[in-house]
Design a protein around this nucleic acid. Sequence first.
DNA 1: AACTCGGGGTA
DNA 2: TACCCAGAGTT
Length: 329
Amino acid sequence: MQEQLLNWYHKNARDLPWRRTRDPYKIWVSEVILQQTQVVTGTAYYERFVERFPTVQDLAQAPLEEVLQAWEGCGYYARARNLHAAAKQIAEDPFPETFEGWLALKGVGPYTAAAVSSIAFGYPKAVVDGNVRRVLARWYAIKEPTELWLQTTADGLLVVQEAGNWNQAVMELGATICTPKAPKCPECPVKTFCKAYQSGKPTDYPAPKVRAEVKEVQAVALIVGDLHTLYIEKRPEKGLLGGLSGPPLEQVQSGETAEVALNRLLGRLAAKEARFLGTIEHTMTHRHFVVQVHQAQADLPRTASTVAMSRLDRKLLGVLQEKQGSLFG
DNA sequence: AACTCGGGGTA
DNA sequence: TACCCAGAGTT
């Protein structure tokens, strides 16, 4: 089976930018960007990131704000903060070459440590990501595989002499053939080894994960000034959209009206003459924001030129753009 | 072991 | 709409 899959991978591997380099730094960057980010989305971020920060020393010396700016819109911003911190940790040292060495870095968990050490250094450790989980669950017809079973089974199947290629081959199969909803089993190079295929119902494996419900969040945002003299504040590092900047935002607590939240916001900023601009909605994995955007007057400093904002923040500013017709940032 | 943390692709 | 994405850190 290993030979079949490796041969298939050799002929069918997608031409992805991080497969054109052996640079551990660039492979590391790609793996962090690809955490919970699909290849189609991550590719553009990868290209821009390694162009702006070509070496780990460039990244280590850059201000955090610039790193977050390169990450704008990509989500899970702790990845950017941790990557920057880890770059500072090792900029003066040689790169780790083992699974354990990579695992010690901030933002590097079992998946990324296995991926970088195997792909860049040939270290014999199996990756377990969403693709591998699905592929193994189908090969063995296991509906609810545990993390321990997955890692043990993956390590047992690893082709030690070709650890990096094997790891990528399993992921490639999961991404292009053994897909979640409509797997292309007839094209699968290893279908004869697959119990889920033999069962005739491959999509029964693995069972879907129970997901938290999407909670609706009401909030009020305040735009002070206009598009050229905007007041933007930086959120605390921890929590939702931590470390990013945006217009002041105040959640409407349960049992209170938007007006109460707006007055709280106006009080905090010593702002007055609020006028309603519009409402935006923004959905994240586990939250659906409904935000009333208001504009007001206050004596506050204007925004620094380099700030990183989330999609939600951009959407809030979009309401003002519709009224003023000019572009910020 | 269960939450939290973004945003978007696909059927 | 449901489900998932080349997961990690915290509780």
